[in-house]
């Protein structure tokens, strides 16, 4: 398998499944699901995940083509390779689903999430929060004498790291959008 330079978990290079069927390694995959923007489509996708016992780590959905009534759902999910394949196949058989892309195996992709952090504090803690925000390229979008709201964009890992740093500095609230992702190149 390594001689063919096929990434583990990939099936896109072969008509046959090259994965080890007995692998029990849980992987995280980012799926892009292009759907008709019709009533109930998100409920169908979510119902599929809950009904069949799959995980959702992150989910974003918005209309991307108003004229074509098309929405893009980006879902980050976890499972063994066999479960991930099954999730993709199950998504593919929903009637309003046009395309399912596994961005984790279909080549490089950019993944971004936006988050808002409310941090409350005064004195050194306030200065430290502002300093770290600059390092993380977070913007201050709201400020009072005792608080900031930071806006930060990045990968899940970057946002998780920022959250860890803000916690001892007075983090009071977080809002995250979930991941949006696109393949690199064209």
């Amino acid at each position: 398998m390594s001689a063919l330079n096929i990434k583990k978990g990939s099936t896109s290079h072969s008509a046959y499944d090259l994965r080890d069927p007995h692998a029990e390694v849980v992987e995280s995959h980012t799926l892009a699901v292009l759907v008709d923007n019709e009533a109930g489509v998100l409920a169908r996708v979510i119902g599929l995940f809950s009904g069949r016992g799959y995980n959702i780590d992150s989910l974003t959905v918005a209309e991307i083509d108003h004229k074509g009534h098309r929405s893009r759902i980006t879902v980050v999910t976890r499972g063994t390779p066999a479960v991930i394949e099954q999730i993709k196949a199950q998504l593919g058989r929903l009637v309003p689903v046009h395309e399912v892309h596994d961005l984790t195996v279909e080549g490089a992709a950019v993944e971004r999430e936006l988050a808002l952090f409310k941090v409350r504090g005064t004195g050194d803690k306030r200065i430290e929060a502002l300093r770290l925000a600059e390092i993380f390229r977070a913007n201050v979008v709201d400020s009072t004498l005792e608080s900031f709201v930071f806006e930060i964009t990045g990968t899940i890992e970057k946002i998780d790291a920022f959250a860890e740093l803000m916690r001892p500095l007075g983090l009071v609230d977080v809002a995250r959008t979930g991941v949006a992702a696109l393949p690199r190149g064209f």
Binding site: Y16, D17, P21, A82, E85, Q86, A89, Q90, G92, R93
Partner: peptide, 15 residues
């Protein structure tokens, strides 16, 4: 005819 039936329960050699 349903791709989701393939490898759902039993791993097959030729789908």
């Amino acid at each position: 005819i349903d791709p989701s039936s393939i490898n759902k329960v039993i791993h097959v050699d030729l789908p």
